[in-house]
Amino acid sequence: MSQLVIESNTAPPGGSDVDVVVRGVVRVLGGTRALDGVELDVAGRARVGIVGRSGAGKSTLLSLVAGLDEPDAGTIAVGGEAAARERLARCALMPQRDSLLPWRTALDNAALALENAGVSRRDARRRAAPLFARLGLAGSERLRPAKLSGGMRQRVAFLRTLLADKPVLLLDEPFGALDAITRAELQAWLANALAAEPRTVLLVTHDVEEALLLCDRVLVLSRGRMTAELDVDVPRQGPRREVVTSPGFVQLREQALEAIE
């Protein structure tokens, strides 16, 4: 894939090497501790995966990092800034469902963040359009989400998140709604897109394999606590089938699954 270049008129606050530091975070939701003393360090441009069962507190953690919510105890800093609006200024969230706006075409959905930032619709489209071709979406620019396949919708949603031009990407189960084959396709696609456009990435998923394929480090969140931390130090080049069956990969997956139990 050729290099993606996103023109930007506004440098993301704090530069592009923005780190995320979470210290002793507690969040109580509905009387239970959804997060109970979470510690997390994500270096600038690192890719960290968080796996766990449904209800383990994964999405809650992303909302907190994004600045959409405040912890009951502990601190969260993004690029050294702890205030919610500063976190919000540095993070772009890709929600669980694709959350495309049904009244906008694929291109206008992707350009949404630019328009929100005050760029005219024409200029926003002009900036989003080249990415469509480069990321395998050519021809779908004028289609509304209802006409797109699930995989295409997720690609547009990711493009929209990327075009927000924020240093930190928070991906919440980005491929949770897709079938296994499309999912594998999109994981490869995302790995390429992130290689071309490096950002600090926090990926939440219940799919251990997905996290191990896409991230440098994988943390296991269980009942509101981090219970394991795995460095993904196995080679991941080559066909997916070979990667996921290599001894090192299999061992990591076993460790992660054990920690989730």
Binding site: C91, S99, A113, N116, T161
Partner: peptide, 19 residues
């Protein structure tokens, strides 16, 4: 969910209303 998404994509109150 759409409102949360908008807030992390530079969406102010007016942008959320309009879009």
């Amino acid at each position: 969910e759409l409102v949360r998404m908008m807030r992390t994509l530079h969406g102010g109150r007016l942008a959320i209303f309009r879009r």
